[in-house]
Amino acid sequence: MSLTRQDVEKIAHLARLAITEQEMPVYVDSLSSIVAFVDQLSKADTGLVAPMAHPLAGQTQRLRPDEVTETDRHEKYQANAAAVQAGLYLVPRVIE
């Protein structure tokens, strides 16, 4: 199956990606060919096979003791941020 421009615009919005006018047809094209390629999975007979989410079957989640191990390093961590004020990360105003 192939994707329409509208499909790609919807996906790009969900993924929060700005796609330029020039890029758009390229993505419609390549995403369509990728989807067509993976469509061959539909032919596989998976019957009652359970989906696999993790390569090591039988492994279960390890639990961490409830201990505070972290200290305040916000200055070091915020050195990578483009916009910070009074310890807060800044984004364009969000109204609700």
Binding site: V68, E70, D72, R73, G87, L88
Partner: peptide, 24 residues
């Protein structure tokens, strides 16, 4: 009411200075 967060070792106390209890 845990001492540390659900997936990290940062403290959960209320009212600390902004981002002082946010670890990596």
């Amino acid at each position: 009411a845990t001492r540390s967060k659900i997936f990290s070792g940062a403290p959960t106390a209320y009212g600390a200075p902004p981002n002082s209890q946010a670890c990596l």
